[in-house]
Design a protein around this nucleic acid. Structure first.
Length: 392
DNA sequence: TAGCCGTGGCA
DNA sequence: TTGCCAAGGCT
């Protein structure tokens, strides 16, 4: 045991070494954590200590925190609230990998909330294109302008005031208060719901279990470092306590977890899901002098406020799309799966006249610049199909 | 309150 | 190929 402790201490002398590659860094952090845990175990080998869950998690986080562009290192001064807010909006129901390039693009182009508030709507919507959930982009602008107009360009520092801002709900308000302002707030997102429902083996199914999960999260949230704690829960959820195959053997909370030996992947329990409805519609490629007709979709509803090809794709799901539209020559078909329905979109080559029947406020867009139009993915697929036809 | 609202990666 | 899922909010 003494030899192990000496080896652990000598290894800790190399803690400042930072390998160049991401994989090596990850392995190094992993090694450093286990060395630290081993040294701790040696030191406390004969003493049973009841360490709080938050303390275990924070210790793990200090060694394993992911290095993300919107973060400051664990335990350091709070990061810029603007960057925290922007990242939290982008990360709503969106993976870290998808957000990174958009976060870089937005912060380079609009480095402050004042600059963003002064931006043109069309520029922001186009910059958001491809990230999905476009109401977020509309609310992003509304929020930036509310901060400038109603809060002197400064983000409010408490959960209650944050909650009144457009696009900022219960989760986001708590996350900003905790991370950007070091307030004690109970931060519950999808990761936390999963971790906590496993930790306490919550048998109630989501979403009815949400109040119970909030209460349980409240019981384990520390008085200080609530922001680091929240981010630690999210890191744990995305790297160890994953949805399908959790890595319980290396989990810092394994000894506290009631689900670890009882099919942890089966938590959180979920209500049975219903099948996705099928919808079909027609999109029109209407060309003139090397340009193609684009329209702006209505501000609310499906793909609200985004540029698009004229189509029979309705804004409200309740209405029926005109699937059997026979004007124009058939030019192909694409399939796109949204969260709540599966769309088969027929493409037809129309004329400016048929286009005017569908929309009167279109804009003619150069075909060779279509990539800059900021089309949502479903219409970007249409563009790809038609561009391939042109090049053939 | 439950339905609506994107996208891409993964198994 | 298909379904599941990810740092939710709005109505």
């Amino acid at each position: 045991m003494q030899r192990v402790r000496c080896r652990a201490q000598s290894l800790k002398r190399y803690a400042h070494v930072r390998p160049a590659h991401a994989l090596e860094q990850r392995i190094w952090r992993e090694l450093a954590f286990h060395v630290s845990a081993l040294a701790h175990l040696c030191h406390k080998r004969s003493v049973s200590v009841d360490i709080p869950i938050s303390a275990k998690l924070l210790r793990w986080y200090d060694a394993h925190a992911r290095d993300l562009p919107w973060r400051s290192p664990p335990g350091s001064s709070p990061p810029d609230p603007y960057r925290v807010w922007l990242s939290e909006i982008m990360l709503q129901q969106t993976t870290v990998g998808a957000v990174k390039p958009y976060f870089a693009k937005f912060t380079a182009r609009w480095p402050t909330v004042d600059r963003l508030a002064a931006a043109d709507d069309a520029d922001v919507m186009a910059a958001w294109a491809g990230l999905g959930y476009y109401a977020r982009a509309r609310n992003l602008l509304a929020c930036a302008r509310a901060i400038v107009a109603g809060h002197g360009g400064v983000f409010p520092a408490n959960e209650g005031d944050l909650r009144t801002l457009p696009g900022v709900g219960t989760y986001t308000a708590a996350a900003i208060a905790a991370i950007a302002f070091h307030q004690r707030a109970v931060v519950v997102d999808g990761n936390v719901e999963r971790v906590v429902s496993r930790l306490f083996a919550v048998e109630t199914a989501l979403p009815s279990s949400k109040p119970e999960l909030w209460r349980l999260t409240d019981t384990v949230t520390p008085e200080t470092r609530a922001g680091d704690f929240a981010q630690a829960m999210m890191d744990l959820g995305s790297t160890i306590c994953t949805p399908r195959h959790p890595s319980c053997l290396i989990c810092p909370l394994q000894t506290d977890c009631l689900a670890t030996r009882n099919d942890p992947a089966s938590y959180p329990r979920r209500a049975a899901k219903v099948a996705k409805p099928e919808r079909s519609a027609t999109a029109f490629w209407i060309e003139r002098d090397g340009q193609v007709l684009l329209i702006r979709r209505p501000q609310s509803g499906l793909l609200g406020g985004m540029r698009a090809f004229p189509s029979t794709l309705e804004t409200k799901a309740a209405s029926v799309d005109q699937a059997s539209f026979h004007q124009g020559e058939p030019a192909g078909e694409i399939v796109h799966v949204f969260t709540h329905f599966r769309l088969t979109l027929s493409i037809r080559i129309g004329t400016p006249e048929t286009g005017c029947n569908i929309s009167t406020d279109g804009e003619w867009w150069p075909i060779d610049l279509l990539e800059e139009a900021g089309l949502p993915s479903v219409f970007a697929k249409v563009a790809t199909v038609m561009m391939e036809k042109v090049t053939i």
